[in-house]
């Protein structure tokens, strides 16, 4: 169950760790993690392939197009809890660096 833990992957894991029992939509994860679709979806695809994530189509009202939803599998939740926190110091440094860069460059 290998998944490369890039800073972006950690952001996605963290987004899912917030109410992990709830199904989440792609756009909502994108907004919460700040990742663009081109970065987010490859991570979601890899997580689903490694059975860390389960996917489902929303059965909404008739006439309304369904949305794809994502949620941790038990394995995924264990993996996220074990790994997202490990990367917290690195993430903090990165966030601080990003803030500093934003302030310097606008």
């Amino acid at each position: 169950m290998k998944l490369r833990l890039s800073p972006q992957t950690v952001l996605v894991l963290e987004a899912f760790l917030h109410h992990p029992e709830q199904w989440k939509y792609g756009y909502d994860i994108s907004r919460n993690s700040g990742l663009k679709s081109g970065t987010l979806y490859p991570i979601l695809m890899r997580m689903a392939e490694r059975k860390l994530l389960e996917t489902s189509w929303e059965t909404g009202e008739p006439g309304k197009p369904p949305r794809h939803m994502y949620r941790f599998t038990p394995d995924g939740l264990r993996f996220a809890r074990a790994n997202a926190s490990l990367n917290a110091p690195g993430r903090a440094v990165q966030v601080a660096f990003d803030r500093m860069r934003d302030e310097v460059w606008g």
């Binding site: 939509y25 792609g26 756009y27 081109g38 987010l40 979806y41 197009p65």
Partner: peptide
């Protein structure tokens, strides 16, 4: 990715979403 497009606020954000999705 196509279904999510309906929920994206902003015209250009929708286009960038589509471009990123196509790349993915």
């Amino acid at each position: 990715m196509l279904r999510e497009l309906d929920f994206i606020e902003g015209e250009w954000a929708a286009l960038f979403w589509a471009l990123g999705s196509a790349t993915a």
